[in-house]
Amino acid sequence: MPAVLLTILFTYASISKLLQYNTFRFQLDQSPFTTGYSGLIAWFIPAIEIITTALLLFPVTRLKGFYLSYGLMLLFTVYIYAILHYSYFIPCSCGGILSKMNWEQHLVFNIIFTLIALTGIFTFPFKSKA
């Protein structure tokens, strides 16, 4: 179940960022933390989300996908926390249905998915020793 939820999330998130590339980059430009690196990040984030999705799809690579999911979701969570606590600007976040959430809801959403990724890591079957 964690793999399904994370796959849906990252597929949706990466596609929406790529389809609305200009908007996404503009939003990164607005952010005090990413304004200097928006060109790089605008490609890097959807790319890493696609790679994560691909890793989650196959049982052989799923654990790596969970690690990457955890890293990404933790990064997004800490980013929102930092925006709320250390920034004067409150820029827009992402496109699609997620943009309907405010920052606090987004923070809770991210925490839940961070925990889902952790659940995936620690419930993924261990390799049986021959």
């Binding site: 503009f26 430009d29 607005q30 304004t35 200097g36 928006s38 600007f89």
Partner: peptide, 9 residues
Amino acid sequence: YKSSGTRML
């Protein structure tokens, strides 16, 4: 015109 690079309010 689009904003680019660092910005300081």
